[in-house]
Amino acid sequence: MKAIEVRALTKRFGDFTAVNAINFEVAQGEIFGFLGANGAGKTTAMKMLIGLSRPTSGEATVAGFDVYRQTEQIKRNIGYMSQKFSLYEDLTVWENIRFFGGIYGLSAAKIRKKAVALFERLSLHQEANALVGSLPLGWKQKLSFSLAILHDPKIVFLDEPTGGVDPITRRQFWDMIYEAADRGITVFVTTHYMDEAEYCNRVSIMVDGRIDALDTPKSLKNHFRVETMDDVFLRLARNSQFKEA
């Protein structure tokens, strides 16, 4: 079974077509980069996949569940990290873990076990009782990701997870993404850093609501005869018809 299957998925707002009949599949354990200019339709497409927005037409399944009829099952089987930092700043690290573990229905024993492993992995022992608001941004992002996969979801959706973090933390964050993928978690990620596009197994590039390119970074660079993903992106996004509309 594919982790994500999308057929002719479309979303219209009035006479504006935000997502225009897109097709793609994501394999289990794949790191899939979902790229596009601002306003190309990425967020709208992602919202449909995580069960927050009903498609106008087309079909899609996420972790085997239908995006029209099984949105609750989808939410139980995925993790989501939004670009805005979304942990509770006024709760401690430990309280955040308990809160998110509880939301996902994990038992107290399981939450404790997960917490120990998480403190270990992030070297956060000292900070277990620190307010999340007092942590440096890089740690917050890593904690946020760890909580998004606390319940071992089949798929995790990451919306610009590394915006504004320092170059070392950014790479540590990608180490965590690789580790998660290694454990079989499918990763669906958006980013504006084109070097990060290179770290994905495959990337799609949205332009004006369509997916104009979808392949491995290497094949895309070969196809467009350019050296970097930055150049691939510029080549495609310049074709946009209604970029500033």
């Binding site: 596009g36 200019a37 601002n38 190309a40 670009q83 610009e160 915006g163 504004g164 504006h192 084109m194 930055d230 992106f233 510029l234 996004a237 310049r238 946009s240 970029k243």
Partner: peptide
């Protein structure tokens, strides 16, 4: 102050 944060590569350019 950070005029291009969160902006795609084309708009940044």
């Amino acid at each position: 102050d950070e005029p291009t944060t969160g902006v795609d590569p084309v708009s940044r350019k």
